[in-house]
């Protein structure tokens, strides 16, 4: 969250993916850095124990949202 918000503030388009167990933390972090509307992309928790193939599927499912956020849209 911290790095994504800072990249964006520095003019570098960013997209941050966070698992849904971290919604309160991510939201508070965005507020803390003065970016309450930062368009965080949330995905189902957890990702740690996904296989390589499952992780790929998850990434593919999120790709369109990442593209939208990187081009200034909402997830």
């Amino acid at each position: 969250m911290h790095d994504g918000i800072h990249a964006e503030k520095a003019g570098v388009p960013s997209a941050t993916i966070c698992t849904d167990r971290f919604v309160p933390t991510a939201t508070a972090m965005a507020r803390m850095w003065g970016a309450p509307d930062y368009p965080t992309i949330f995905t189902q928790h957890p990702v740690e124990n996904l296989t390589r193939q499952q992780l790929r599927q998850r990434a593919e499912a999120l790709a369109a949202q990442v593209a939208r956020v990187l081009t200034g849209g909402l997830p």
Binding site: F22, P24, T25, A28, M29, M32
Partner: peptide, 10 residues
């Protein structure tokens, strides 16, 4: 330090 359980202390 805002290390609040459930918020920044996870």
């Amino acid at each position: 330090g805002a290390a609040i359980p459930g918020l920044f202390d996870r």
